[in-house]
């Protein structure tokens, strides 16, 4: 039981806590394999123990091997080998069957998300009717509960892999080749996804949050995301906006509604609405944001975000501005 608890891991990132139709199938496949392997393991260990005990008893009592011992041994080995082959075949067939039921994309999928893996964060774009024709965000995907969502996967540098254990299996993101996958969440929740293909120094800190919520809440979220960035009304935030646009920030980040339009780094139009920063590395708080801006290499060594030298009052203004981007 304790072992099972350990295997289960965190509730929001676990194959054994499935929350969607695809993950259900993967989970039952996992349980089937686990049960079969456990039975085989116990049987093998028991048989081994029994054989050892019997041989010892015979030796102590000075018994000879029975005359048909050789034949019985051959029969035993043949049975064991055939059982192994059969079990492996059953594994193969169930595995392929589950794989095939996961693949086809449902004909009706109201939402399409383009997901691009980058070192070391996720670029998220919803095909949309907004002015830009798309809604752009990063490291956080919101989906409505009970609806299939289609994902078009791509990568811009190296191979990454998308894995939300609670919702679906893995799928690789390959540079220059668009793959597709889909999943559906049946219960609302915040599911953590992780890059599952080693992609460089900060592979471990490349997380993505999939937030499944009721339809109405999702609609409200996407409506907010469609809007251009909030224009600051107070002088501090206004100064922060100037710092952002005239300094290093705008060289890599974009904010819709301003002149910042570079797509090297994550889009920050609605930064303050996200739960984490730096691809799930830090909570989205003022302090964490300040530390990340000033010395990102301490938090995530090797990240492509460079350190920023800012005067204290400029940093303060910049933080106020970024936190106003709801």
């Amino acid at each position: 039981m304790l072992l099972l608890q350990t295997l289960r891991g965190a509730p929001n990132q676990s194959v054994l806590e499935s929350s969607g139709p695809l993950a259900d199938r993967v989970e039952s496949l996992w349980w089937f394999a686990f049960a079969t392997a456990s039975i085989v393991y116990l049987a093998t260990m028991g048989g081994l123990w029994w054989a050892a005990a019997r041989a010892r008893r015979r030796e102590r009592q000075g018994e000879e091997l029975p005359p048909d011992g050789e034949r019985r041994m051959t029969r035993g080995v043949t049975i064991a080998v055939s059982a192994t082959v059969v079990i492996l075949l059953v594994f193969l067939i169930t595995d392929l069957t589950v794989g095939r039921t996961l693949d086809p994309v449902p004909r009706k999928h109201p939402i399409t998300v383009e997901l691009t893996g980058k070192q070391w964060w996720w670029d998220v774009q919803y095909a949309d009717t907004s002015a830009q024709g798309r809604v752009q965000t990063a490291n956080e995907i919101h989906i409505p509960v009970g609806q299939p969502v289609l994902f078009l996967l791509n990568a811009s540098d190296v191979i990454h892999s998308m894995w939300v254990p609670n919702l679906a299996g893995k799928k690789d993101l390959i540079p220059g080749y668009t793959q597709s996958m889909w999943f559906q969440a049946d219960t609302a929740g915040d599911y953590r996804a992780q890059c599952a293909e080693f992609c460089g120094l900060q592979h471990a800190k490349m997380a993505l949050h999939v937030i499944a919520e009721p339809q109405a809440k999702y609609e409200k979220w996407i409506d907010e995301q469609r809007k251009p960035a909030h224009t600051p009304t107070d002088s501090v935030a206004d100064r922060g906006r100037e710092v952002f646009l005239t300094g290093q920030c705008a060289m890599c980040h974009s904010i819709t509604g301003t002149s910042a339009a570079s797509h090297n780094g994550p889009d920050l139009t609605h930064l303050a609405s996200r739960r984490t920063i730096a691809a799930g590395t830090l909570p989205n708080t003022r302090g964490a944001l300040a530390g990340w801006i000033v010395d990102p290499q301490q938090v995530k060594p090797g990240t492509h975000m460079p350190p920023n030298q800012l005067a204290p009052q400029d940093l303060d203004a910049l933080l106020t501005y970024l936190q106003s981007l709801k």
């Binding site: 000033v294 010395d295 290499q297 350190p307 030298q309 800012l310």
Partner: peptide, 12 residues
Amino acid sequence: TRRLRESPPSAT
């Protein structure tokens, strides 16, 4: 050698 974090971290 990967000099990822120069010291002082945020200074030019």
